[in-house]
Design a protein around this nucleic acid. Structure first.
Lengths: 336, 336
DNA sequence: CTGTTAGCGCATTCAC
DNA sequence: GTGAATGCGCTAACAG
């Protein structure tokens, strides 16, 4: 009933546990015949080594912890997908921590800074305090930041400034001059900075085109789709409303679409909309967007982490992934 | 540098490891003074017990495996969120397995049927073969099916038939008679059955209202939002098109909305649309839907699993959660 | 090539 | 109330 152990296998195969261990890890040379015999017994007993015992003996957990802020945002989930897919083909388990409150963030950072907790950590879109950065270093816990940055930790990011520039530039090239920017709160308890960077790009593009920045064309709100609809409406009912909106995420863009529909404003005829991220919705809803490699960034983060685990190094890597403008149906020249 | 062990604590506190272990697990009685001293040393050394060693000694992994088919569908992710939130307040780690191909499904079922792999398993929306059901039983691995069913395993489901009925009934009450049903392929390699059950409810409601079933009003397609747009269009360009569409999921409903927009069919004036699931999008886009407690079902599955872990039982539980009609902006009486 | 043995870090009987 | 000893299942020297 209770699962067979390496000792059972050894006994039944008439060899020592060491030999069984050897054929299991096929590291050292074992005589062909012996190996066959052991393998047969393993098969027969339906034996499989205890991961826990293995971990204790090896001194590695064969586990990587993944901290993610919200499972509610498609862009986060998409990164997670990438992480999962890369981890699936490795020998590492993915243990998931959803840090949707600042307290949980703290808790998990603490927990995961212990070397015996996991072999490495991937942190999605969260900025560790200096305290934790120090802990990670002290415990020599390999970590990589995905969609976040810190000089002392390897990180995978996209150039959000360039992306924001690209989006705005596209609108400008179409002939728009009344271009709004709609986003989450640029200041937020989780210290997400992407939206701020995109705003910088937006601002920069306007400046270069000598389009003066109008504060009333910049609106922020709570994170999430519902709020996006609300703030989009606020913006669209104003006199002299924008002819184009750069929504800081595709979620926001969908919100803008909804708001426009309710106000009987036609997209793209009366209003151009461009999003950011390139989540699936943007494709289905045919929204022009600046696409970033969400899934791939997850894969890259895993590769970076695994190599950090296998050959520790003190110099953090910094990988910047490209964004790409994808023109679809929601952006056209202004009608006016 | 290397983390302190229980032995270090014992030594520095001038007690035996057994005593340290006792204050750690506060199970046996330890003299107040001794306890204080040990605690102080623990604090001082920043000691924390090795999870791995603990697991090996205890014989429990303190881990529950979660198998999820796709991280791409909001409804699955929402269930996962519920699972995560419940697990977060327990002492169990959540190790995630995304089984997005039949091979991976097989692999994980195999892997997780080993008692030393996890203390329990939550299987989201996937139907284990009899082979695996047998394995789970044989290895006495506690398991619960979430959004799936099997007589020998505890399961958490909603009454999709009733939900489908409810949706259709709503449309009928509004006066619709040309009611279409749009869904994924009712037959699919993952054996998802929800769509089929909802179809049954649809069929049943029509029958009771003496509305004859029209095969051309039932269309299926690949899973996902993009295909939903395509099949919705197909249906909407036909002559004598339906006045209302019951989309088998909110994702499909969003697709229908998009299709309608492209074809210049106004919703809800020219076409009513009702979805299913109650994902966030349905709220933001103001789509009438039949809401099921996705998040809560995840929580319930964890509770069910944990009690199965703590007091094993041979009789599987079967919990049916309610669905609820939420009327929003996409359903009105037919204009014709 | 293969067997013996000593840990990995902790929990837990059993004596004291 | 506390310590010594044993074992969880496996890996890794170290001998042979």
């Amino acid at each position: 009933m209770t699962p067979a152990t390496i000792r059972d296998v050894a006994k039944q195969a008439g060899v020592s546990v060491a030999t069984v261990s050897r054929v299991l890890n096929k590291s050292y040379s074992v005589r062909e015949g012996t190996s066959q015999k052991v393998l047969a017994v393993i098969e027969d007993l339906d034996y499989s080594p205890s991961p826990t015992a293995r971990r204790l003996s090896i001194g590695r957990t064969h586990t990587v912890g993944v901290i993610i802020p919200f499972l509610t945002l498609p862009s986060f989930v998409e990164r997670l997908r990438g992480v999962e897919s890369a981890l699936a083909v490795s020998e590492y388990d993915l243990v998931l921590f959803s840090a949707d409150t600042p307290e949980k963030v703290d808790h998990y950072f603490n927990d995961l800074s212990r070397r015996d907790r996991a072999d490495g950590v991937i942190i999605i879109s969260l900025h560790p305090d200096e305290t934790y950065v120090a802990r990670f270093r002290k415990s020599a816990m390999p970590a990589v930041l995905l969609d976040a940055q810190h000089p002392d930790i390897s990180s995978i990011v996209v150039d959000d400034v360039a992306g924001g520039y690209k989006a705005t530039q596209h609108l400008i090239e179409l002939g728009h001059t009344r271009i709004a920017y709609l986003s989450d709160y640029l200041d937020n308890p989780f210290k997400f900075v992407a939206m701020r960077h995109r705003f910088q790009g937006y601002h920069q593009a306007l400046e270069e085109a000598s389009i003066s920045y109008r504060p009333e064309y910049q609106k922020q709100g709570e994170l999430g789709g519902r709020e996006a609809v609300a703030i989009a409406k606020q913006m669209l009912v104003e006199p002299d409303r924008p002819t184009a909106i750069f929504a800081a995420s595709d979620i926001h863009a969908v919100g803008v679409l909804k708001a426009a529909q309710e106000l009987n404003i036609r997209v793209p005829q009366d209003l151009s909309v461009i999003g950011f991220d390139g989540i699936r919705d943007s494709e289905h809803l045919d929204i022009t967007t600046v696409c970033q490699p969400l899934f791939d960034s997850g894969v890259v983060s895993v590769n970076t982490l695994l190599s950090a685990i296998n050959e520790p190094s003190d110099v953090p890597e910094k990988i910047v992934l490209p964004t790409k403008l994808i023109v679809r149906g929601t952006t056209v020249p202004p009608s006016g």
